[in-house]
Simulated assay, not measured.
Amino acid sequence: MVPPLALDIDGTLTTPTGRIDPRVFELLPGWEAPVVFATGKAFPYPVALAHFLGRDETVIAENGGVAHVDGETTTVGDPDAAQAVVEAFRERGGKVGWGNGDTVNRWRETEVALSLDADETLLREVAAAAGGDVEVVDTGYAYHVKSVGVSKGTALEVVADALDLAPEAFVAVGDSVNDVSTFGVAGESYAVADADDAAREAADAVLDDGFMDGTQAVLSELRGRAE
């Protein structure tokens, strides 16, 4: 049998230009084990991906702030604390950076994401002044202001328990510092070649190829083992 998967989305299931790679729609609909989409994006994004793949909407969103499995949604973290940091950042002249019609944060429930154009030094200074309960995570796609202790790895443990599986049963693939916690609880972990240093150091193996090329290679290997 193929193993269950914990898959990041951006940089892992995408092309270098940020589009969902069409191979996702070839390889994942028929995967004969649970697939968890674990992302820093807001909750609707991984749900939509699972829906259009015809898979159960088993997802981790907002870097672990939201976990959804078997129709039940769990949220953790303090969104008010994250929002307070961002408001203080704005008061000191900082800009969130998404422009008008901010769909990046519109449906976000547990954290706030800022554009990489935002003043990172000022943002981290404001977050530190908030007292240590809020942190800033640079995923390479955005600066995420979130509660300390919230992570994809912790959320994967919640999802695995709901599925009556051990977290160690999962194979995880990712590309960023926010995947390090997932790698820590999954039984097997891979960083695609475009991964940042934190992910590369935490993974069991770094793939030769980046983006969906690397993920496809892992899925092909896992299927080959199962045959």
Score class of each variant (00 low, 15 high):
A113S: 15
A61C: 09
D117K: 08
D179I: 07
G99H: 03
E32P: 08
W107C: 12
W31C: 02
G153E: 07
P44I: 10
D179F: 03
P46Q: 00
A193R: 08
E227C: 14
V206R: 04
P22E: 12
A205F: 11
V185R: 06
L123C: 09
V137T: 14
A88Q: 05
A199G: 10
K95A: 13
V104E: 07
V218T: 07
E57I: 12
E125S: 06
G94I: 06
A130H: 03
V159I: 02
S189C: 11
T17Y: 01
P79I: 14
G30A: 13
F43S: 12
E201V: 15
A129S: 15
V150S: 03
A217Y: 01
Y141D: 13
K146F: 07
V36D: 12
A130C: 01
D161L: 02
K41W: 09
V76C: 13
A199C: 07
A226E: 04
H51C: 08
Y143E: 05
A42C: 10
G11W: 05
N100R: 14
G65V: 02
N105D: 10
T74D: 09
V69E: 04
D102A: 14
S147N: 09
G184F: 01
V173H: 01
D8I: 10
V137K: 05
P16I: 02
V171Q: 05
L114C: 13
F170T: 05
P22C: 06
V137R: 08
T110Y: 07
E72H: 12
V206M: 04
V136P: 01
V104L: 05
F170M: 06
E135Y: 08
V148G: 00
E157V: 15
G54K: 10
A203Y: 05
W107P: 03
L123T: 09
A169D: 15
K41N: 14
A205Y: 07
L163P: 13
W98R: 00
L165E: 06
L114Y: 10
E72N: 05
V2I: 12
R19M: 11
A202Y: 07
I60D: 04
A6E: 00
G101E: 13
R124Q: 09
A202L: 14
T73C: 12
T110F: 10
L156P: 01
S220K: 10
I9R: 12
P29Y: 15
I60W: 10
A142W: 03
S181M: 01
A162R: 15
H144R: 03
D102C: 13
L222R: 14
S115H: 15
A202K: 02
